[in-house]
Simulated scan of single mutants.
Amino acid sequence: MPFSTTMVGGTSKAFVNDIDARWIMAYAAGLGDTTPSYIDTESNIVIGHPMFPVCLEWPAIMDCANIPGSESITSDERTRDVHAAHDLHIHRAIRAGDKLTTSATIVGISKIGPGIAQTIRIDTIAGDGELVCRTYQLGIKRGVDIIGEPTFVEETPALPILPEIMDRGYQYSIPLAKEAAHVYTECARIWNPIHTDRAVALAAGLPDTILHGTATMALAVSEIVNHCLAGDSTRVTRVGGRFRAMVLLPSTITVDIHSVDKTLITYTVHTDTGKPAINQGFVCYH
């Protein structure tokens, strides 16, 4: 059935999380990233990987299905959602001991060729009202129409102007095991069955289970932080990119770091068949 634009402006429930070192360490370990600031509880205040906010955002994104106006969406249509683009703004690193509240607001729905485009803004705030991070997530629902006119309640921030890619630049290959999606699922606490349940993945029209887009992005960010920022993830202020080809498992992905200037790093991630898994990738930093 068509997707109602009356959902625009609606907000999910607020989800409160007590952030402990165990979760932060597990997320980093699931990526194979042993940077001391993520895992050394003796000599550091343990901080979250730059992509750790996705762990907190998942329940709020799922709860958007309960926003008034969503009643017309069938269970089959819910399986057609594709995470198309991600734009994470980091105001400060998440730390062990934080008590954070996360909610998601649908800020735009429009009709596009493959179906509909839905933009969700996800805010994570501390107890004193401090905005810790904010994500703008673009999802495409394939083969779905809309009821009502295209609707937006706010403009999304302009993306960084990316320089033209002149060559592939620095390249780093990352081998991925067959169980990589299962490990990421449990460490991130992001439970989407298309990544771990083959029957569900096949029923959704996929060739097999696939790696999470945020896992692919997080692996790239780990390499960028370690190669370009001397392992100091607190310098990262924004991470984004567009998700393209699926990452099947087992396989090897390649991170291409194209350019590094005073505030911006650009990257692409390729699958082992040479297709871009992430393009228009960027990391902003100070």
Rank of each mutant, 00 (worst) to 15 (best):
L249A: 02
G281A: 08
E155G: 12
P250G: 09
D272N: 11
D20E: 15
S72T: 15
V54H: 14
P114M: 03
T79L: 02
Y172R: 07
R198W: 04
I116F: 03
A180R: 10
I109M: 11
P68H: 10
A65M: 11
M217P: 02
R142A: 05
A29H: 14
M25I: 14
A60F: 05
L56A: 12
E130G: 04
G241C: 02
Y285F: 15
A60D: 04
N192T: 09
A245M: 05
P207A: 01
A117W: 04
M51W: 01
A96C: 04
I165L: 07
V82F: 12
C187T: 15
T254N: 03
V183K: 14
D76K: 13
V283T: 07
G9W: 04
T156M: 13
S4Q: 12
K262V: 06
E155R: 15
A60V: 03
I210W: 01
T41F: 11
P114C: 11
K13Q: 11
G129A: 09
T6F: 05
P175H: 06
A204V: 03
I67H: 11
V269G: 01
Y285H: 15
G148E: 07
P114V: 06
G281K: 12
A204E: 08
G231A: 03
V46T: 13
E57T: 09
I24S: 03
I61Y: 13
C64K: 01
K13M: 13
P157V: 01
R142P: 02
D123I: 07
I125R: 15
V255E: 04
H212D: 10
E155T: 10
R92L: 01
T209Q: 12
K262Q: 12
T124H: 07
I106H: 02
I61K: 07
G240P: 10
A204G: 06
I257F: 00
E155V: 09
Q118A: 12
V225D: 01
T102H: 03
V239F: 00
G115W: 00
S103R: 13
D76P: 03
G241H: 02
T74N: 08
V183T: 15
L159H: 13
V153S: 10
Q171H: 03
M1F: 08
